[in-house]
Computed example of a mutant assay.
Amino acid sequence: MVEDIPTRIKSLDWESIQNELDENGFAKLPPILTKDECESFMGLYNEEESYRTTINMTRYRFGNGEYKYFSYPLPEVIQSLRESFYPELAKTANRWLGYLKKPELFPDNLQDFLKTCEEYEQTRPTPLTSFSRSLPLL
């Protein structure tokens, strides 16, 4: 039986991940999503109603391809990933603010963070997906 996404994320070695983030600014994680979840997620790319905006990268000289911002309600897999990763990443952000001698800014849960964003009229969802076309090497 496959564990649900929150359980998979909670069971990661967060002490090690936090150390890697502090040391390197990034951390490599083991696979989080199952093959079926990945395929389902990739299938969303052609469902235009799932997105609020599509950006053509070539138009802005960002390279070849496009990226799309999801609209609310977010797909279940995206919402679950956001809610599950947020608490640990908020700890990281607050710890890093402490290194800069700044007060903690990020609340413990995603819903409280989104309420703060709403107070500042930041109400559009930020998760995005992208598609790039590789250019052949000459």
Score class of each variant (00 low, 15 high):
55 I>K: 02
4 D>F: 03
83 E>Y: 05
80 S>H: 09
134 S>W: 09
131 F>A: 09
128 L>F: 12
67 Y>H: 10
4 D>R: 10
30 P>T: 15
126 T>V: 15
22 D>C: 00
118 E>F: 11
15 E>L: 11
11 S>F: 02
64 N>L: 12
116 T>I: 15
135 L>E: 12
137 L>A: 12
53 T>R: 14
107 P>A: 05
10 K>G: 06
12 L>E: 06
9 I>D: 04
81 L>F: 03
89 L>I: 09
134 S>A: 08
7 T>R: 14
30 P>C: 14
57 M>L: 14
36 D>W: 03
70 F>C: 02
23 E>N: 13
27 A>C: 13
45 Y>C: 03
72 Y>W: 04
92 T>A: 03
90 A>L: 02
32 I>W: 07
99 Y>G: 00
19 N>M: 12
64 N>Q: 15
35 K>D: 15
20 E>I: 01
54 T>Q: 11
70 F>A: 03
111 Q>K: 10
30 P>K: 15
135 L>M: 13
122 Q>P: 02
85 F>W: 07
137 L>P: 01
66 E>F: 01
100 L>W: 00
86 Y>M: 09
73 P>G: 11
16 S>K: 15
132 S>W: 03
123 T>Y: 01
108 D>H: 13
16 S>G: 09
5 I>L: 13
35 K>Y: 11
128 L>A: 06
42 M>N: 10
46 N>T: 13
96 W>S: 00
67 Y>E: 04
13 D>V: 08
56 N>R: 10
116 T>V: 13
118 E>L: 10
120 Y>F: 14
131 F>H: 15
128 L>T: 04
53 T>Y: 09
120 Y>R: 15
52 R>K: 06
130 S>W: 12
130 S>E: 04
134 S>T: 12
18 Q>N: 10
27 A>L: 09
23 E>P: 01
52 R>D: 04
71 S>G: 14
31 P>E: 01
91 K>I: 07
115 K>E: 08
123 T>N: 15
62 F>D: 05
101 K>T: 03
4 D>Q: 11
14 W>Y: 13
54 T>Y: 01
92 T>E: 00
46 N>P: 00
14 W>T: 08
116 T>D: 08
13 D>M: 01
47 E>L: 11
75 P>L: 11
17 I>L: 10
87 P>E: 06
112 D>G: 02
12 L>F: 14
116 T>P: 00
78 I>W: 09
79 Q>M: 01
72 Y>A: 11
87 P>K: 06
94 N>S: 03
75 P>C: 09
80 S>N: 13
78 I>C: 08
107 P>S: 07
45 Y>E: 09
102 K>R: 08
83 E>S: 14
61 R>Q: 11
47 E>G: 00
55 I>P: 00
79 Q>I: 00
49 E>F: 08
98 G>H: 02
65 G>I: 03
60 Y>R: 07
28 K>H: 07
50 S>H: 05
52 R>P: 02
18 Q>G: 05
56 N>I: 10
104 E>C: 07
16 S>L: 14
20 E>C: 11
26 F>K: 07
98 G>Q: 03
83 E>T: 11
106 F>M: 03
50 S>F: 05
84 S>T: 10
31 P>I: 10
136 P>T: 09
92 T>W: 03
63 G>L: 05
116 T>K: 14
